[in-house]
């Protein structure tokens, strides 16, 4: 790690005012320090936000839940309200990382995890995300873990989070404070595709701080499933993951949400795919159609083309599991 200075404000406005050109906020630190040790991140100042009052989980007036940005991943997954009303979120969180990391990592920080692309992490090799303009060796290199949807000439990396896949499916809202004040960002607008600016993972402006995540009332507690496929049974990033949530009435789907992880630079959703399920019987033919729609335009590289078929099967399996009812 390069030398840096350190500050620990106790108020949000104080934290934001401390933020300078090469500052980073730190909470759990599980990804930031990891990257700093590899010289991928080289901040001059760390602003420790763990002293801010952002660690509560509260019900909102409209029946949703507001999660403070500093709530740890473990506490969130095991919170009674989340387990009961948003089991999809609890399951996605518990499918990620390790118990130790989940005890450390914050809710806000989880959104800001950076890709696990090998090339991004190895600061001796080219990478457009790490050093714009140097190239993307993954395109013609080791791309088994990489994107099949929404990738660009410049970058084929994927977002590594499990929690975010569930948050995307649940239509969460991100609360942000920054130099320009507070704003709310719909989850689907929070992360971005790489395009010509792969160095930007999300739409946060310089100095903005995530303060909370809000979940709407609809938690799909009856019919949801999180399916994660990876190279070992635990403690590995997803090749493909699926968050599936259904509202079913008399065997007919009234509302559906599907988000994919491990396939793109952001959790992947498709309105047409979800719409195709509405009014249909919660049966394999409908799931198959939705999978086709979700994966429209998918294209792979030398080592990851299998993900397209894997994702198709995973979507069908997750929808079938959700239709059967949320597993205990």
């Amino acid at each position: 790690m390069n030398p840096f200075s350190y500050a620990r404000p106790t108020r949000i406005d104080e934290a934001i005012s401390l933020f300078g050109p090469q500052s980073r906020y730190i909470a759990g630190g599980t990804n930031l320090l990891d990257l700093m040790k590899e010289n991928v991140e080289r901040p001059k100042q760390l602003i420790d936000i763990t002293g801010l009052p952002l660690d509560s989980i509260e019900e909102t007036a409209d029946g949703g839940v507001r999660i403070g940005a500093l709530v740890s991943n473990a506490d969130l997954a095991w919170h009674a309200l989340i387990e009961r009303r948003y089991p999809l979120l609890a399951k996605a969180i518990l499918a990620g990382a390790s118990p130790q990391l989940r005890n450390m990592a914050s809710t806000g920080g989880n959104l800001l995890q950076r890709t696990r692309c090998y090339y991004f992490y190895d600061s001796t090799v080219p990478c457009n995300k790490r050093e714009p303009g140097t190239g993307c060796p993954a395109r013609d290199g080791l791309n088994r873990m990489h994107a099949i949807l929404g990738h660009s000439e410049q970058c084929i990396a994927v977002h590594p989070s499990d929690m975010c896949v569930a948050l995307a499916a649940l239509d969460a809202v991100v609360h942000v404070s920054g130099p320009q004040g507070e704003r709310r960002v719909d989850f689907r607008d929070f992360h971005r595709l790489p395009g010509d600016e792969p160095e930007r993972d999300n739409t946060l402006a310089e100095g903005e701080l995530i303060t909370a995540i809000e979940l709407p009332a609809a938690g799909y507690a009856e019919h949801s499933a999180y399916l994660k496929l990876r190279d070992r049974a635990s403690y590995a990033f997803a090749l493909v993951s699926v968050a599936a949530a259904l509202d079913i009435d008399g065997g007919v789907i009234r509302s559906a949400r599907i988000a994919l992880g491990g396939v793109a630079h952001k959790p992947w959703r498709d309105d047409a795919a979800e719409a195709s399920l509405i009014g249909e019987a919660a049966e394999p033919p409908a799931f198959d159609r939705a999978a086709q729609l979700l994966l429209q335009g998918a294209s792979g590289f030398e080592h990851n083309a299998f993900k397209i078929e894997l994702a198709r099967r995973a979507i069908k399996r997750a929808l079938a599991e959700a239709a059967r009812g949320t597993a205990a």
Partner: peptide, 22 residues
């Protein structure tokens, strides 16, 4: 990565050894 002539999954996150759950 044969283009770079370099091992790239050089960590315990991407070089998978079995975990307890395996």
């Amino acid at each position: 990565d044969h283009n770079l002539g370099r091992f790239m999954n050089h960590n315990l996150s991407e070089y998978h050894i079995p975990v307890n759950a395996d």
